[in-house]
């Protein structure tokens, strides 16, 4: 098992953990954490691929992609938390009611 394969496998594991958390947890904050773990999995795969592609240095294109991805993730996270906060202000809870989904 090469270093690339090891971290790529870890990416698969993290992806599953994050996805499970996203599905199972009802609190909005925890759903956001689940998404951030999925994000970490994606970044891990990209960086592992960059490592596999290395010459004098690792492939810089996936590195730039991950930097962008990290910034995008923090943006979406902040927006989600601000929404969660306002939802709490309006309704007193930070969970989404389940029955609304079926309509």
């Amino acid at each position: 098992m090469s270093t690339f394969e090891l971290y790529a496998a870890l990416a698969a594991v993290l992806f599953a953990v994050g996805l499970y958390g996203f599905f199972v947890r009802q609190e909005l904050v925890r759903k956001v954490v689940g998404l951030n773990i999925i994000g970490a999995a994606v970044f891990l795969l990209l960086i592992a691929i960059a490592y596999r592609n290395r010459g004098d240095f690792a492939d810089p294109v996936p590195h730039a992609m991950v930097l962008t991805g990290i910034v995008v993730a923090v943006s979406a996270t902040a927006l989600a938390l601000a929404l969660a906060r306002r939802i709490e202000d309006e309704t007193g809870t930070r969970r989404l009611p389940e029955d609304e989904e079926s309509s």
């Binding site: 996203f22 909005l28 759903k31 956001v32 998404l35 999925i38 979406a76 927006l79 989600a80 929404l83 969660a84 306002r86 939802i87 309006e90 309704t91 989404l96 009611p97 609304e100 989904e101």
Partner: peptide, 14 residues
């Protein structure tokens, strides 16, 4: 609207 926005964001983020 806030809840709808939240659902939209969660789905789109995933």
């Amino acid at each position: 609207a806030l809840r709808a926005g939240m659902r939209y964001l969660l789905a789109a983020f995933l």
